[in-house]
Structure formats: C-alpha cells, structure tokens
C-alpha cells in the first residue's frame, strides 16, 4: 500500500490485503451458508457470520487509516446485530410453534 503520508501512521506488520482476503473469504462462506442451507437457524447463523466478516473488513480499513470512526461503526453494528438476533429468534420461535418445521422450503408460504 502506498500512501503519501504512510509514516504518519504506524504501518501494519501484516499487509492490509491479507486482512481483506480473510474477511472476503469469511463473507463468501457465510453467503454460501445462507444460500445453500435449508435449516432456518443455519441461515441465520450464516448471516451473522457475514456481518462479522464485514466488521473485520471495516476494522482493517480503520487500522490502515488510523481512524477511530471505523471502530465506532463496528461497535454499532455489533449492538444492532444483537437486537436483530433477538427479534429474529423470537419470530423464529413463534413460527416454529405453529408450523413445527425448520425447513425453510416448507416455511415459504409467501411465494407463489
């Protein structure tokens, strides 16, 4: 990474591209889980994994720029993910009680 004022920030020992690669691979794995699994809970877990991969990417860029706003973003994303997980699981529990199945193909009554 070349930048005009790289010496203003302490450079990273591990190159930025390594973190980007890891974050993207984790995102793609989460995407695979979300698209290919039929268990609703597993899809949910894969979505959480995708969010965390994005967190890692934001942190890597924040470290590169030396900016603390990136860590603020991650802080908010973690808290919002907690709220979303709670509500999502409540919906899932309510749905499971009536339908008695976790297969996402059988829960798809909104489709034509």
């Amino acid at each position: 990474m070349e930048g005009a004022a790289m010496n203003a920030v302490v450079p990273m020992t591990v190159p930025l591209n390594a973190y980007l690669a890891v974050g993207t691979i984790l995102f793609v794995i989460g995407l695979a889980g979300a698209l290919l699994k039929r268990n609703t809970l597993s899809i949910f877990l894969s979505i959480e994994l995708m969010m965390n991969a994005v967190n890692l990417l934001v942190l890597a860029y924040a470290r590169m720029r030396g900016d603390a706003t990136g860590q603020m973003v991650v802080f908010f994303v973690i808290a919002i993910a907690a709220a979303e997980a709670a509500v999502g699981l409540a919906i899932f529990v309510a749905l499971f009680r009536t339908r008695r199945t976790i297969d996402v193909d059988r829960l798809s009554s909104l489709k034509w």
Binding site: V10, I25, A62, R63, G66, Q71
Partner: peptide, 23 residues
C-alpha cells in the same frame, strides 16, 4: 468477483494527519 475486486482495488489514499489508532 468480490475477492478480485477487493484485492485489486488497493488502498485509498491515507489522510495526511495520520490517526490515533495504531499510534
């Protein structure tokens, strides 16, 4: 596609002031 774009894009220019994180 994602991997290619992310790794090829390189880093945006660093702000001249530098930052607290890492320092």
């Amino acid at each position: 596609l994602l991997l290619g774009v992310t790794l090829k894009a390189g880093a945006p220019p660093v702000p001249a002031a530098g930052g607290p994180i890492g320092n």
